[in-house]
């Protein structure tokens, strides 16, 4: 095995020197990230740092301005649509809102990718769908419509759909947002169990520190387009950087100030500066 091939087999995703701008704002500035195979890796950072955009770059939904994004040893930006779709059959993607098809039942939602990509007989599709729903604990909800589901249930159905084609990599976009504590616990457990039992590589984008610490093997902290810290949850907890401490402990004030930049308060109240 050559060094290059060896590198690919160790890291599922390898991002080097990623640059991406939206208008005048640099979202990523020479960002480097490696996602090791078989692990749960989290990408954390404050809202608006481009965490979701990073997932979209990894999955080829957004093309980088510069830099190299290798997924399973293939440069995502250089793939044709057909090649990209072929690569995506190895990926599962859990959208923040689930992105379930609202005009189909839970069963049909999970069956969708199987029907689209295979010519399996109906009886076999039924078995696969029921197995996937059983894995997320929602076999009993197969006949329900997505509008009848709670937020947590919808996310679990979306998870069942994401693993329907037995992917190698699964991407979670803010999986803990807006869930009650029980649903949150269920999702945390599912991410871990699915990752270990199916031999997946999981990539989570989130800003929920406690949940991420409970499930991830290692985390990247990104801010202002760069990686500011990397390590296991314990290493990040004991990180010396004031910024990392503020983020991990959720402190209101620190290197990231409480106040958004504004003109002098008194001058503004007295009308000396425009609002």
């Amino acid at each position: 095995m050559t060094t290059e091939e060896h590198k690919h087999s160790d890291n599922v995703v390898e991002i080097t020197g990623l640059k991406y701008r939206v208008g005048d704002k640099a979202i990523f500035d020479r960002l480097n990230i490696s996602i090791p195979r078989g692990k749960v890796t989290a990408i954390m950072g404050p809202s608006g740092t481009g965490k979701t955009t990073l997932l979209r770059v990894m999955t080829g939904q957004v093309l980088p301005d510069r830099g190299r994004v290798m997924v399973e040893g293939r440069n995502v930006a250089r793939l044709t649509t057909g090649e990209l779709y072929e690569l995506r059959t190895q990926m599962g993607f859990l959208f923040q809102n689930g992105a379930l098809f609202t005009d189909s039942t839970v069963y049909e939602n999970v069956a969708f990718p199987i029907r689209e990509h295979t010519r399996l007989p109906e009886a076999l599709i039924r078995h696969i769908v029921l197995m996937k729903l059983q894995a997320v604990g929602l076999r009993g909800a197969a006949a329900m419509m997505p509008t009848e589901l709670s937020g947590g249930m919808a996310r679990r159905v979306a998870l069942a759909r994401a693993i329907a084609m037995d992917p190698k990599i699964i991407f979670y976009d803010e999986p803990f947002v807006g869930l009650d504590p029980i649903s949150m616990g269920v999702i945390v457990r599912l991410i871990r169990v699915l990752n270990d039992s199916l031999g997946l590589t999981s990539i989570i984008v989130s800003h929920d520190v406690d949940e991420v610490n409970a499930v991830s093997d290692q985390s990247y902290l990104i801010s202002n387009g760069k990686v500011v810290a990397y390590g296991t949850p314990e290493e990040l907890e004991h990180n010396k950087s004031a910024w990392v401490r503020q983020f991990m402990k959720g402190l209101a004030d620190g290197p990231v100030p409480f106040h958004y930049p504004a003109p002098d308060y008194a001058s503004q109240l007295l009308g000396e500066v425009d609002t």
């Binding site: 939904q61 779709y85 995506r88 993607f93 969708f112 990718p113 689209e116 759909r161 084609m165």
Partner: peptide, 18 residues
């Protein structure tokens, strides 16, 4: 708007065709 089209693309299904 509800990312169903993006979801389809992520499942390697072409939304224009489907």
């Amino acid at each position: 708007a509800t990312e169903q089209i993006a979801g389809m693309e992520m499942m390697a299904v072409d939304p224009v065709q489907r």
